[in-house]
Design a protein around this nucleic acid. Structure first.
Length: 578
RNA sequence: GCGCUCUUAGCUCAGCCGGAUAGAGCAACAGCCUUCUAAGCUGUGGGUCGGGCGUUCGAAUCGCCCAGAGCGCGCCA
């Protein structure tokens, strides 16, 4: 199994650092900031100079001297205050590229000690259509799920449906208010249920009494009222069915479709445990757990509300308990809005106090909100939030306009065209979201989700489609792959880029940051575009060059497809243009 | 009030456990299709990295102060 090129160079450096009795912590390279001077650089000498009180150039010189002896390295120089610039032999680059070209993991090893990771993302609610706010959780969550899986972890994803809170009581109350009873509940579809919820929402905002009724119904529902339970089950089932459709379209995969309600029994255990450990107390009618005061405001966690119902703090704690006991999770990753940071800090802390999270790593990946141009969470002109389905359709329509009509291109009927439209539109939407750092929110520009130029999903899909086209032609002419030979700059930088794959995956996994992959996929596709323009394959000067370039192109195609897969994006075989 | 996050090109964002000339996309302008898909490529212009002080041989990056923005702070989720 081969290593990424950085790992290879790091190993060489580590050996030298050890021989020179230098701290190997600084024995690492990064792609050069000055590509005009070198392929990679090591700044270790600068860092070491501080602690050793030595001249950085002298330290760098000693390291460089040793590196020069390495046959894989073409040139080493010490520049500026003590940068070590390293350039590689073309033969070395070609050989490494050859080795990853025959490996479906491109030289990226799986984790030696895989762990069981439970992922919690999606977080849809009963009776609420998914809107743009749900896009990030689904898209980011799915990407991280695939990255974790790729590095070798066993991942179980759970949608964690919002089906146990006050909104449930609000809907039921509203239906009773309008119908007099719950007899007609099972005749309502999602749209009707959603309409009830909207009306309930307005009513409860204006009317304290209505709110009180809703709260009481919620508590009764949770505590087992059979009539409410029956209606609730129907509402929940209808909502789940609806939401499944859109997650399927987004290609977000959930192994479990559990909700807050599934933690209800465990909630009781958590409450009991807290009492036994004397961690809970009753305050203003509610059962709470107080948290140690720090410089941060830490409001107490409410286990049981004063009306006897449970809120999402307990259900989340109880869910941790279940995930540890039933699923044997080593790590639980939550991909949830950044605004929930305090909530998760509280929940994690109580889980630890209760001793139910002793052997599990709890991670909240808080993503920034999708904002409007005013910097506030995105709203449509009428003040509502944009439906996810509407957003997707909008992007699709834009793609459709640039497409040939069904039948115009051989082999592309209505179904094939529509499939293509969907792949491209969703590629654009997901990439648009994923290219932003998770933590920082981004401004939602409607047009951006229907843009296909520049740093976009379709740009990468297009690169793949062009390579596919070459591969078809090569096959027709019986051109076969041969050893990779680096004979010009564009081939060289493309190959060097390809060799970073393992390192990129490692970073994306470590930082839980899909934008590391979008960046890499984009620059790789960019490197390929240069190669495409300057390095003809079918009309290359010699058969050897053609064979080498063919392998490079195929490798780029396979890698880009893999990268897109890790982003949850499909790669069409071809891209058609009207 | 307390706490968290943020302020980089006209716009949207990278870069941030200190290092060489601060990058990309979009937008603007100028070029490139008898040659593997122009959803592409090449080039040009565009920045006192919010302001100030400090630490350092060296600061967009670390610390402090100020200004501005967003978010969060017990019975919604």
């Amino acid at each position: 199994m081969s290593l990424s090129i950085e790992q290879k160079l790091n190993q060489k450096l580590e050996k030298i650092f050890q021989e020179l009795e230098l701290d190997a912590k600084f024995a690492f390279v990064k792609p050069s900031d000055r590509p005009d001077l070198s392929d990679f650089q090591c700044n270790g000498a600068l860092a070491l100079a501080k602690t050793l009180h030595k001249n950085p150039r002298e330290i760098a010189g000693n390291i460089a001297e040793q590196l020069k002896a390495d046959a894989d390295i073409a040139a080493v120089s010490v520049d500026g205050p003590g940068f070590i610039n390293i350039s590689l032999q073309n033969g070395f680059i070609g050989a490494l590229a050859d080795s990853i070209a025959q490996d479906e993991r491109f030289g990226c090893e799986k984790s030696a000690s895989p762990s069981k990771v439970v992922m919690d993302f999606g977080g849809p609610n009963v009776a609420k259509a998914l809107h743009v706010g749900h896009l990030r959780s689904a898209v980011v969550g799915e990407s991280i799920r695939r990255i974790e899986q790729f590095v070798g972890n066993e991942v179980v994803s759970d949608v964690h449906f919002g089906d146990w809170g006050t909104p449930m009581g609000m809907i039921i109350a509203e239906i009773i208010r309008q119908d007099g009873n719950l007899d007609k509940v099972e005749t309502y579809d999602v749209a009707a249920i959603s309409a009830f919820y909207k009306q309930a929402n307005i009513r409860c905002k204006e009317d304290e009494i209505a709110k009180e009724i809703a709260r009481q119904i919620t508590a009764d529902l949770q505590n087992g009222n059979p009539e409410y339970r029956k209606a609730w089950k129907y509402l929940r089932d209808v909502s789940v069915a609806d939401v499944k459709k859109i997650y399927a379209e987004l290609d977000a995969h959930f192994d479990l479709w559990l909700g807050e309600s599934d933690a209800h029994a465990a909630c009781g255990e958590v409450i009991k445990l807290a009492q036994e450990k004397r961690l809970s107390e009753v305050d203003e009618g509610a059962t709470i757990v107080r948290l140690p005061e720090t410089n941060k405001p830490m409001p107490p966690v409410i286990l049981v509300k004063s009306d006897g119902g449970v809120g999402y703090q307990v259900t989340d704690i109880a869910t941790i308990k279940m995930r540890v006991e039933d699923l044997h999770a080593d790590e639980i990753i939550y991909v949830v809005d950044k605004r929930q940071t305090l909530h998760f800090e509280q929940v994690f802390q109580v889980a630890q106090m209760l001793g139910i999270a002793d052997n599990v790593k709890l991670t909240h990946i808080g993503f920034g909100t999708v904002n409007g141009t005013d910097g506030k969470p995105f709203k449509t002109r009428d003040g509502g939030v944009m439906n996810l389905e509407d957003l997707i359709e909008l992007s699709k329509e834009k793609v459709r306009q640039s497409m040939p009509k069904p039948g115009e291109v051989e082999g592309y009927g209505a179904d094939e065209i529509e499939k293509l439209v969907s792949q491209i539109a969703l590629g654009a939407i997901k990439f648009q979201d994923l290219k932003n750092n998770i933590g920082s929110g981004y401004v939602f520009e409607l047009e951006d989700f229907a843009k296909f130029d520049g740093k976009t999903g379709p740009y990468i899909q297009y690169a793949i489609a062009r390579i596919n086209s070459i591969l078809r032609k090569a096959k027709a002419q019986n051109l076969e792959e041969g050893d990779i030979v680096i004979e010009n700059d564009d081939e060289r930088s493309l190959a060097l880029k390809l060799l970073q794959f393992g390192n990129i995956i490692f970073r994306a996994h470590e930082e839980k940051e899909p934008s590391v992959i979008t960046d890499y996929a984009y620059t790789l596709a960019q490197n390929f575009s240069n190669f495409y323009n300057t390095c003809p394959i079918m009309t290359a000067q010699t058969a050897e060059i053609a064979a080498s370039r063919l392998k490079l192109a195929r490798l780029v195609r396979d890698m880009l497809k893999q990268l897109l897969y890790l982003l949850g994006i499909e790669a069409p075989e071809a891209m058609l243009k009207a």
